[in-house]
């Protein structure tokens, strides 16, 4: 038995490879795929009482979700906020990645390290510091009042969708800088010179050569920021207020105080589906655009 296994092992590269991969794949299957499948299954069940769940399959939870306007409102708001976060993050970090890739000559790594370092410090603390900055008795208001610029604290700073977008754009910056920098840095510099030699202006070179070539980085950044931020819980909870509440806050209460696992599971499934759909559409459009441009 052991001998046949040994023979197979030394003969087939695939078997060796999959033996090495098995711990990782088992982890993904047991700790991610099966829980997700069970979650999908639970979304077809009914919560009868505190502890009891009726496992007759039904689509009622999805009907519940769409019949109560608050759920779909929160879902659309989550998608809208993530979309804005992705857009703001891309627009603000692109010039930076561009600068590091094309203008910084010495110590490029140092720049990258400095730009990504805040990302490693506790996410909770970073969001919390925005709460402190934007709050009614916060840093901005107290500083403005101390300097005499205002008499009353500005109340629009915190507890809004804008506050959520700003905080998330700060928190996810590193995830945009890295892929953008990598794709910009890879661009063959002789292509840019060729474009100049052929009479293109700096602007034209950017739009016709640099930008299309950096699109893989743009797509990477979009996916890596858009998908996780749709499910963000901490930021809306700390700086969102009622206006900035997102679907994940609702999911949390369904699995907590409201104790309705099936409806919580249905909400999570719909979040996952819509985020995958939007991500696919964005990738598709970006690819089409890049084809047309080049």
């Amino acid at each position: 038995m052991i001998n046949t296994w040994r023979k197979l092992f030394s003969k087939h590269e695939s078997i060796r490879a999959y033996t090495l991969l098995s711990p990782a794949l088992i982890l993904v299957i047991l700790a991610m795929a099966s829980p997700l499948l069970l979650m999908v299954l639970t979304s077809f069940h009914t919560q009868v009482s505190m502890m009891e769940i009726d496992s007759t399959l039904t689509l009622d939870r999805y009907a519940d979700f769409f019949s109560r306007p608050v759920y779909s409102t929160l879902l659309f708001r989550s998608i809208k906020i993530s979309f804005l976060v992705t857009l703001v993050t891309l627009l603000t970090t692109y010039p930076l990645a561009y600068y590091i890739a094309f203008y910084v000559k010495k110590n490029k790594m140092l720049w990258i390290v400095l730009m990504t370092l805040p990302f490693w410090t506790s996410y909770l603390l970073r969001v919390f510091s925005w709460r402190v900055i934007l709050g009614h008795k916060g840093v901005i208001n107290s500083a403005l009042m101390f300097s005499g610029a205002i008499d009353e604290p500005l109340s629009f700073l915190i507890y809004s969708q804008t506050a959520v977008v700003l905080t998330l754009a700060h928190a996810w910056a590193a995830f945009a800088i890295l892929p953008l920098y990598v794709s910009l840095d890879k661009i063959d510099k002789s292509l840019l010179e060729a474009s100049y030699d052929l009479g293109c202006s700096k602007f034209q070179t950017f739009w016709r050569v640099t930008f299309p070539l950096s699109l893989p980085g743009v797509i990477g950044a979009i996916l890596i920021i858009f998908i996780p931020t749709v499910g963000d819980y901490v930021t809306p909870q700390l700086v969102g207020g009622t206006d900035g509440r997102m679907l994940s806050n609702m999911i949390q209460s369904l699995f907590g105080r409201a104790n309705n696992f099936p409806l919580g599971a249905a909400s999570a499934v719909l979040m996952l589906l819509s985020v995958s759909f939007v991500a696919l559409v964005v990738t598709y459009i970006t690819k089409k655009v890049s084809l047309r441009m080049s």
């Binding site: 997700l36 996780p228 499910g231 963000d232 699995f255 996952l272």
Partner: peptide, 14 residues
């Protein structure tokens, strides 16, 4: 890439 909250909720269920 999957939103953490979804992994968390799925693990609670199982």
């Amino acid at each position: 890439v999957i939103p953490e909250i979804i992994i968390a909720v799925a693990l609670i269920v199982i």
